[in-house]
Amino acid sequence: MCDTLSLAVRDTFGALKAELSRRTLRARFRSCAEAILATVLAICVSRYLGLTETWWAVICAFSLTGLALKVALDMGVQQIAGTFGGTIIGLMLSPVASSSAVIFVLSMAGLSAAGLYLATKRSMGYMWILSTALAIFVVTTAHANPNVELHGVASSLWLNASIGTLVYLGVALAGSAAALLCRRYEPGAPESGPVMAHALTGGELGRVPHAMIGAIALSALAYLAWRYPLDGFPQAMTTALVVLMVPVDAQGIWSPYRVVQRMCHRLLGCGLGCVVVLAVLPLTAGSLTYSLIAVCVLVWLACYVRFGHSDVSYLGTQFGAVVILTFVHDSVWLSDSVTVAYHRLVGIVAGNVALALVLLLVTVGSTLRFGRRAQ
Results as ranks from 00 to 15, higher is better:
Met75Glu: 04
Val96Tyr: 06
Val102His: 06
Val96Lys: 03
Ser98Pro: 01
Gly90Asn: 01
Gly90Gln: 02
Val77Tyr: 05
Ile88Cys: 12
Thr83Met: 13
Ala97Gly: 05
Ala38Glu: 06
Ser94Tyr: 03
Arg26Glu: 05
Gly86Gln: 00
Arg47Ala: 15
Ser46Phe: 06
Trp56Asn: 00
Met75Ile: 13
Cys32Lys: 01
Lys70Leu: 14
Leu69Met: 14
Leu69Ile: 11
Pro95Ile: 05
Trp56His: 13
Ala15Asp: 04
Ile89Asn: 00
Ile103Gln: 06
Leu64Gln: 05
Leu64Ile: 14
Gly76Ser: 09
Leu25Tyr: 09
Met124Cys: 12
Thr120Tyr: 08
Val77Gln: 10
Ser112Asn: 09
Val58Thr: 13
Pro95Ser: 07
Gln78Met: 13
Phe62Asn: 04
Leu37Tyr: 01
Gly115Trp: 02
Ala33Gly: 04
Leu51Asn: 05
Ser21Arg: 10
Ala33Asp: 01
Arg122Phe: 14
Ala113Ile: 05
Leu118Ala: 15
Gly14Lys: 02
Leu118Arg: 09
Val71Ser: 13
Ser107Thr: 15
Ser107Leu: 09
Met75Gly: 07
Ala27Thr: 08
Ser94Trp: 02
Tyr126Gly: 04
Met92Trp: 08
Thr54Ile: 12
Gln78Arg: 09
Gly110Ile: 05
Arg23Asn: 10
Gly76Leu: 10
Arg22Trp: 12
Ser112Glu: 07
Ser99Tyr: 06
Ser98Asp: 08
Ala15His: 01
Tyr48Trp: 11
Ala114Leu: 11
Tyr117Leu: 15
Ser31Ile: 07
Leu93Tyr: 00
Gly115Lys: 02
Leu41Asp: 03
Gly14Met: 06
Met92Tyr: 07
Leu67Pro: 05
Leu64Val: 14
Gly76Glu: 03
Ala42Trp: 01
Val105Ile: 14
Gly90Leu: 00
Cys32Ile: 07
Ala101Pro: 08
Cys44Pro: 01
Val105Asn: 11
Gly110Arg: 04
Gly90Tyr: 00
Cys60Ser: 15
Tyr117Gly: 08
Ile88Tyr: 04
Asp74Gly: 10
Met124Phe: 14
Gly76Trp: 02
Ala57His: 00
Ala101Lys: 06
Ala81Arg: 04
Ile103Asp: 03
Arg28Glu: 03
Ser112Met: 12
Ala35Val: 07
Leu106Met: 14
Leu37Trp: 00
Gly76Cys: 10
Ser98His: 11
Arg26Asp: 07
Ala18Phe: 08
Trp55Glu: 08
Ala72Ser: 12
Trp56Gln: 10
Phe62Met: 09
Leu73Tyr: 09
Val58Asn: 03
Phe13Arg: 04
Ser63Leu: 09
Gly115Asp: 04
Ala42Asn: 02
Ser123Gly: 14
Phe13Pro: 02
Ala38Asp: 05
Met127Trp: 07
Phe29Asn: 02
Leu37Val: 15
